[in-house]
């Protein structure tokens, strides 16, 4: 289905463009929010992403199920990172206080918390933590690759990830406690 859609778009079928947009805009919006976080910025980034998607669609090659989705997602991620790095100075802080509040190795249970809530909690993480967590967990990049992408040290990436997990775990726990 996706293949036919792309073929039609390459033949300048504007209805096909609308269909592609409809099919994936929900997912891509979620991805964008996860990275960019600020609602006021998301529209611009998403808009640029879609324009880039449509205009460079001719360079995309199908290689299996979900490959289009992955390709589109990667474009959104790149646009988001460009935005974050140009507009905001992404700070890679390490807030030691986090380490006190949560004992190490505690199992994090994701039950009784909704997807929307989880998504929101990720958005609320500080920029540095959030970006590294997103790239590691959702894009599956290694710390080496993240370090290259963000121009930081590999060790910085690793520690940012560690702090991100700890803070997210704490937030999840707090939320669950609040709900009970």
């Amino acid at each position: 289905m996706d293949e036919q859609l792309v073929a039609r778009i390459l033949q300048n079928d504007q209805r096909a463009m609308g269909l592609l947009y409809q099919r994936y805009v929900g997912i891509l919006t979620s991805v964008c929010y996860r990275y960019v976080a600020q609602e006021s910025d998301v529209k611009d980034v998403l808009q640029n992403s879609f324009v880039k998607i449509f205009t460079s669609l001719s360079t995309f090659k199908f290689h299996g199920e979900d490959s289009l989705k992955a390709w589109m997602t990667r474009i959104v991620v790149n646009e988001s990172l460009n935005f974050l790095q140009s507009r905001k100075k992404m700070l890679f802080v390490e807030d030691e206080r986090i380490l006190r509040d949560l004992p190490d190795e505690e199992e994090v249970n994701l039950d009784r918390i909704s997807d929307d809530e989880l998504h929101q909690l990720i958005r609320e993480l500080p920029d540095g933590y959030r970006t590294v967590l997103n790239l590691f967990v959702f894009e599956g990049l290694s710390h080496r690759q993240i370090a290259e992408l963000l121009s930081i040290k590999e060790s910085t990436s690793a520690s940012q990830f560690y702090f991100a997990k700890r803070q997210l775990a704490k937030r999840i726990k707090d939320l669950k406690n609040k709900k009970e």
Binding site: G26, K43, V108, H119
Partner: peptide, 24 residues
Amino acid sequence: WTDKLKTRLEHHEMTPPEGLWEGI
């Protein structure tokens, strides 16, 4: 648990911002 995070959210969808298609 972070892997579970991915499983939970990789299909997550959100309402796009208003006027997005027009902007595009």
